[in-house]
């Protein structure tokens, strides 16, 4: 896919994943990569930003004798997800209007 995903959209995708269930870092990248081609080093800055905005919180669980950090959506995060979804809907509508060419009539 040639179209680049903006940071806001990527934020939304991560928040939407976490709305389903809690994830750990690697699993989030895997899930996103199933749909859009992001590089392996893209996710850390995203998670850091979302955490700083208090849209997600972290907790640690032990797994095979080591630590695994899970990310959980906060109330503020759920709200933000709603904002991004709305933004995306109107954006999508506008792009469709331009791209599909039914705006000439």
């Amino acid at each position: 896919m040639k179209i680049q995903v903006s940071t806001e959209l990527l934020d939304g995708c991560v928040l939407a994943l976490l709305a389903e269930k809690d994830y750990y870092g690697y699993a989030i990248t895997q899930r996103i990569q199933q749909t859009i081609p992001i590089s392996e080093s893209t996710l850390y800055p995203v998670l850091r930003r979302l955490h700083k905005e208090s849209w997600l919180e972290t907790y640690d669980e032990s797994f095979k004798g080591r630590n695994r950090r899970y990310y959980r959506l906060t109330k503020a995060g759920t709200k933000q997800l709603g904002v991004i979804r709305n933004d995306w809907e109107s954006y999508k509508h506008n792009i469709d209007w331009l791209l599909k060419g039914d705006n000439h009539g």
């Binding site: 392996e40 850390y44 080591r66 695994r68 950090r69």
Partner: peptide, 22 residues
């Protein structure tokens, strides 16, 4: 973060890690 990432991705050699993470 990357320690956990490398563990979860089951990367062992430097080559494998570099191929994924640079």
């Amino acid at each position: 973060f990357y320690t956990e990432y490398i563990e979860d991705a089951e990367l062992t050699t430097t080559e494998e890690i570099t191929a994924k993470l640079g």
